[in-house]
Design a protein around this nucleic acid. Structure first.
Lengths: 142, 142
DNA sequence: CTGCTTGCAAATAGTTTGCACGTTC
DNA sequence: GAACGTGCAAACTATTTGCAAGCAG
């Protein structure tokens, strides 16, 4: 876990981006949470250690990290986006009833991805879409 | 086409909802456009015939129509939602580069839907998610 | 006529931006 | 010390809501 963070920091540095306190904390929280954090949540968590970190800084950091390819975001339907690290590729199932987010391996979408490529020439962007529906606990759509 | 509109109006009436000028126009535009309209676009089109129709009314109408099951909306990633009629079920592929929306039949997702149901007990909500990626014209993710 | 609908203005949520100051390399 | 990053306030976009007036049933 500490190794993973160290690797990410190293990535940052090696691509010529500056390693700041805000970025270090944000990456650290993302590693700790294993993804799925909104900008809000991320700000709240980092602020426990660094109270004057502003929400807009979180957005700018995430934007920079995304541009560098370390982070990606997914829109979960009703506005708010969640951010996660790009290593450990996965897709998201979101329950519209209870809001739970289930991670599923990329391989689940391999067949679909292939079909869409051959039928429509369309390339799915990995890690960047959420599938909406209802989870097992909430039962099928009534 | 006129028949389709008449059927929708009838649906409205039979479920006890009031048939207003705003609702009639909105349904008419949705039929004419074959879906994929944002609230903005919808307002602009209806305003050609009924200039004082307010955007908030469009949202309220769409909300009512959605509650009645005639209309559904999809979030295309960066905020704005598009609305479409619920008959003629289909899914949406959205190109992140050029924004084009490609409709594909529900059947394309049948296998995925089945897999997710059996592996995770998760029921995909039909017609309510968009798949992001890149269209044939824009080429695969660089 | 009674309540569902609408127009309008103002509020909200999520995110972005301008600018002056602080920090990293 | 030059360029990049951050804090803060204000702008912006998409959508929702309160309220008084309007129209459908």
């Amino acid at each position: 876990m500490a190794d993973r963070l160290a690797g990410l920091i190293e990535d940052l540095r090696s691509r010529g981006a500056r390693v700041t306190s805000a970025r270090r904390h944000i990456l650290s929280e993302l590693v700790g949470a294993e993804g799925h954090l909104t900008a809000d949540e991320l700000a709240a968590r980092v602020q426990r250690a660094q109270p004057d970190l502003h929400l807009s800084t979180v957005y700018r950091c995430l934007d920079a990290l995304e541009r560098l390819g370390l982070v990606d975001h997914v829109h979960l339907g009703h506005g708010r986006a969640v951010y996660h690290l790009t290593d450990d590729p996965h897709q998201h199932l979101v329950c519209e009833e209870c809001g739970v987010v289930i991670e599923v391996p990329d391989s689940t979408f391999a067949a679909l991805s292939h079909d869409l490529a051959s039928s429509y020439g369309f390339s799915i962007r990995p890690n960047h879409f959420a599938v909406l529906g209802r989870c097992a606990a909430c039962g099928p759509t009534s």
